[in-house]
């Protein structure tokens, strides 16, 4: 569904991505892991067309994602830090996006209801707390029933209840014809959700395998421990 070939990105002298090759298929839920500044967010932003790569290609359902903006029709995106115009009201943001974009199969407002977002439609974005903003981002990402969901640190800043609601929603939405990509540092959150694991280190893919394979190879029972084992290997290798 998403094919990434030899992707490089440099910000000035700083090399962020160093030849990333990935082939992500539908029906999987991929955890994108890696230490800080390993290039996770940059990779996601390149798939979305927010950041332009220095070299390489991204193909999305056969469409060149770097050239053709229409491929974003397939993507629902939840940014790490949701930034919206401060003067807009929550309802206006939702309406604006609805007016600009056709849903795949009717709107999905389950999350809007679960978070009670419609009760704060009249509030301006500027007056919202960080967590509430995060909820707005989450609702917008799921709103269009997109085939591909890209969630960048979805549970960061959410209270335990909201974070649980979101996790359940992710699990529910994962399915045959979906591809979900999640990054998070809260690995226990990802354990129940993900089917595949990608580990990025200094802009390179260190491993890409199913969760099952990873657990068997490292001889651990949980994702956090398996990842800890990999990180140790990387540091001492």
């Amino acid at each position: 569904m998403i094919e990434i070939n030899d992707l490089h990105k440099q910000f000035g002298k700083l090399k962020v991505l160093n030849g990333v090759n990935l082939n992500l298929e539908k029906g999987s839920c991929v955890s994108l892991l890696g230490p800080n500044a390993s290039g996770k967010t940059t990779l996601l932003k390149i798939i979305l067309g927010i950041v332009r790569p220095s070299q390489g290609t991204v193909t999305l359902n056969g469409i060149n994602a770097l050239k053709d903006f229409r491929c974003r029709d397939f993507i629902g995106y939840m940014p790490q830090i949701g930034r919206y115009p401060d003067t807009m009201r929550v309802g206006q943001v939702v309406d604006l996006l609805k007016s600009l974009r056709k849903p795949m199969d009717g709107y999905d407002d389950e999350l809007i209801e679960a978070y009670g977002l419609n009760q704060i439609y009249h509030k301006s974005i500027g007056s919202l707390s960080g967590g509430t903003r995060q909820k707005v981002s989450a609702c917008l990402a799921f709103l269009f029933r997109s085939q591909i969901l890209i969630l960048d640190e979805p549970t960061a800043g959410l209270d335990p209840l909201s974070s649980e609601i979101l996790k359940e929603k992710i699990q529910k939405e994962a399915g045959e014809d979906r591809l979900i990509i999640v990054t998070s540092h809260i690995l226990s959150d990802l354990q129940d959700v993900s089917s595949h694991v990608v580990y990025l280190n200094e802009g390179e893919v260190v491993l890409f395998e199913t969760l099952q394979q990873l657990l068997e190879r490292t001889n651990e029972r949980t994702l956090p421990k398996a990842v800890a084992a990999i990180m140790k290997n990387l540091i001492y290798a």
């Binding site: 979305l48 067309g49 927010i50 903006f69 229409r70 491929c71 974003r72 029709d73 993507i75 995106y77 940014p79 930034r83 919206y84 115009p85 401060d86 807009m88 943001v93 996006l97 600009l100 974009r101």
Partner: peptide
């Protein structure tokens, strides 16, 4: 911010 919001959409 407004442009950032739109850039991630199919526009």
């Amino acid at each position: 911010e407004f442009m950032e919001l739109l850039v991630a959409q199919p526009i």
